[in-house]
Amino acid sequence: MPDNPYLPYPVRIQQIITETEDRNLKTFKLGFLNKDDEEQFKYIPGQFCELSMAGKGEIPIGIASSPTEKGFLLFTVNKTGVATKYLHNMDEGGIIGVRGPLGNWFPWKEMEGKNVLVIGGGFAFTTLRSSIVYMLHPENRNRFRDITLVYGARSPGLLLYRKELAEWEKRNDIHVHITVDATDDPDWPYNVGFVPAVTEQKIKTSENSYALVCGPPIMIKFTQPVLEKVGFEPERIIMSLEMRMKCGIGICGRCNIGDKYVCKDGPVFSLAQLNELPKEY
């Protein structure tokens, strides 16, 4: 971070990829304007940034690229409010700012030597993409045992990173279970069903495992009992929360849950930690 933690690094939009058929999700590939900034920017999967649009404001967005991918950052942004709408209408070559990396990360040290189950739903798959790319990198793959992915969306056209999903599906060092709530495509080669149901079908053991779970509240609500049933302890069910944020560094006061600031003490929490906190998120 620069001396002033509120000051964003200037970056250029190198590429914009429309991810979903409803065109509400786009991935922005960003490159630093200054080489020094790029060298200073060291992140770990699970962290996020404030994307900073001059004249519009800032938005907290998870980092979708992996630190093993050099020379750019990826952010996948859902078009929702003023700043995201503006960003969606920008062109390649445009200048924005990036402030970060912010927050904590998935428990990589603790997950070493363990099986990692990744469960994602809808567009809450960005830092999970970062995590999978990170784990599959030749330098890191041996640090983890079996890697399993369950990822679902409402329909095939709403899945993120479809090309990569197809590539992961062909690999033998990751088990991939893609699913959609429903489809009218008779040739759909993957699963049909809600994420919790597919998880129940495919995941039979929690032995020596961690689960990273990101998705809409309804998915998390029904996935949690499935994981508990196969024996996942609350300490090993890891989630990432969203909250309205401004400063991103635990100072402006709005994103607290109890005495924790989601921006600084989170966004990653274990279920055990969340059980100790007020249900106010």
């Binding site: 519009k56 404001g57 401004k246 006061g253």
Partner: peptide
């Protein structure tokens, strides 16, 4: 009380 908001004004 220290909470604050951040806004852009053009």
């Amino acid at each position: 009380c220290w909470c604050f908001d951040i806004q852009d004004e053009v």
